[in-house]
Amino acid sequence: MNSYLIRMTVPWLCPFLLVMSIWILLRGHNAPGGGFIGGLVAAAAIAFWCFARGVEDAKRWMRVSPLHLMIAGVSTALISGLMPMFAGKPMLTALWHKVEVPLLGKLPLGTPILFDIGVFFAVVGVTTSILFSLEEFELWNRSGPS
């Protein structure tokens, strides 16, 4: 898109959206939010970059290919599901461990947050891969299928 204002705004706005997506990811389980919605917000940030500066620039900004993100997300979720089996519990049981953080108190860490992180990366990967495919098809269509 050929607009100077949007091209200059995007590098300032997208980091805010990504921070917001991580915040939404972390507040899940106790409040509205979670991996899926956080992943959608992060994908919206990448979509915004893609609209403003083109597909190639968005891919360079992401640094990781969407396929790798998908694989990493699904394997993280799978590992979090398999972890209770080694503790002698059924698959996908939530395991909790309280970590002592200095000055802040106890931080409950469990497998649900790991599962949510996996969902987050899978959603980002799927959405951006669909978006990039559509954009590339559009570019190919415009240049003429010669």
Partner: peptide, 15 residues
């Protein structure tokens, strides 16, 4: 929080 997300993403559709 819903309002915050809507404010950040609402103009994406316009773009």
């Amino acid at each position: 929080d819903v309002a915050l997300v809507l404010a950040l993403l609402g103009f994406l559709s316009t773009i």
